[in-house]
Amino acid sequence: MKTYNSNTAWKQLNNLLPKEFQITDEQLPLEETWDWNGNKIHLDRYPNPTSEYRIFLHHGVGTNGRQLNMIFGHKMAELGYDVVAIDNLGYGMTEVNQKDITYDDWVHCFADFVNAETKRDYKKPILYGLSAGGMICYNSSCFMNEIHGIIGMCFLKNDDKTVGKQTAKYGSTNWFMFPMMNLLKKIGFKRFSIPMKAVSKMNYLTNHPEALKIFMKDKASAAANVQLQFLYEYMNYKLPIPVNEFDKCPILLTQPDKDKWTPLELSKISMKGIKAPYTVKILEDGGHYPMEEKSLNQLIKYADEFVKSLK
Rank of each mutant, 00 (worst) to 15 (best):
I150L: 07
F110Q: 03
D121W: 00
E146R: 05
G92S: 03
G149L: 07
P49C: 00
P49I: 06
Y81W: 08
Y53A: 01
V83L: 08
N69L: 12
F113C: 02
Y103C: 08
G62M: 14
S51A: 15
G92Q: 02
D82W: 14
K75F: 03
H108I: 01
Y122S: 07
N115M: 09
K40N: 13
A77T: 03
A132C: 03
H148C: 05
G62W: 14
Y122R: 10
S51E: 04
F56H: 15
F113W: 14
L127C: 15
I101H: 06
N64W: 13
N64M: 14
N145T: 15
Y81L: 07
D105P: 01
W36F: 15
A77H: 05
N97F: 08
M93P: 00
M70H: 03
F56A: 05
G134A: 01
N115R: 10
A116C: 04
G90P: 03
Y81C: 07
K119N: 09
S51V: 05
K123T: 00
G133Y: 05
R66Y: 11
Y46C: 01
N139E: 14
K123S: 04
F72A: 14
M144P: 11
N139T: 09
I151Y: 04
A116L: 05
S131T: 09
F110G: 01
Y81H: 07
F110N: 00
V61K: 00
G134T: 00
D112H: 13
R54D: 09
D44H: 15
G65Y: 08
N139M: 13
I147F: 07
Y53W: 09
L79W: 03
K75Y: 02
V83H: 07
